[in-house]
Design a protein around this nucleic acid. Structure first.
Length: 182
DNA sequence: GTCCTGATCCTCT
DNA sequence: GAGGATCAGGACG
């Protein structure tokens, strides 16, 4: 099931929680989202905090689009734009549980262990073969998309975000409690 | 297992 | 000219 655009237009913290258990699909590779982080417009850790630039302009676009950025000189990270167009909020996908196309992921990552394939924001981008050319593309349908998960129940864990220097105290990180791929 | 470091480069100031 | 929403590999215990 493809998600409705209105799902992504909800408040960003709700979308960050709602995305847990959903499937991130790129071509033949599929992973279940098990860990996310929210980045808000008034949040010093967010790329959008200081206003719109060429680098982050996709983050100010329509809900349900991809925002993919390059950093640390060698990695890309994948975000979903949320809330109202122009607000500049997004959810970073931090980890996936690999479901389909696992052989492709192993190839892309040059790793054999399933646990190593998608256990980090840059890793999952490599494993699914997501490229910077997909920045700004629509996630509602298309090669790169997000689908609704099954109805399984799980507890949502909450904590501080990882790897940032500002806004450290905000508990905008969400994950599926007990899932070993987090 | 944990801790530490080096790689590497685009973007904004 | 600095720094960043990271990762892999090595040292050590």
């Amino acid at each position: 099931m493809i998600l409705n655009k209105r799902f992504f237009e909800k408040p960003t913290l709700e979308v960050a929680k709602g995305l847990l258990g959903c499937y991130l699909v790129n071509g033949k590779t599929v992973g279940k989202i098990v860990e996310t982080e929210a980045y808000l417009f008034d949040d010093p850790a967010s790329h959008s905090f200081k206003g719109k630039t060429k680098r982050n302009d996709k983050m100010f676009g329509e809900a349900g689009k991809a925002y993919i950025y390059f950093n640390y000189g060698m990695y890309h990270c994948f975000n979903v734009v949320t809330n109202v167009t122009g607000k500049g909020e997004a959810v970073l996908i931090r980890a996936l549980e690999p479901l389909e196309g696992i052989e492709i992921m192993k190839n892309m990552r040059c790793k054999e262990k399933i646990l190593d394939l998608c256990s980090g924001p840059a890793k999952l981008v490599i494993a699914l073969g997501i490229s910077k050319e997909q920045n700004g593309c629509d996630l509602l349908n298309g090669k790169l998309r997000i689908e609704e998960g099954n109805e399984e129940k799980f507890e949502i864990g909450k904590g501080k975000r990882i790897g940032i220097s500002k806004g450290k105290e905000l508990k905008y990180r969400f994950f599926i409690k007990g899932n070993e791929f987090v």
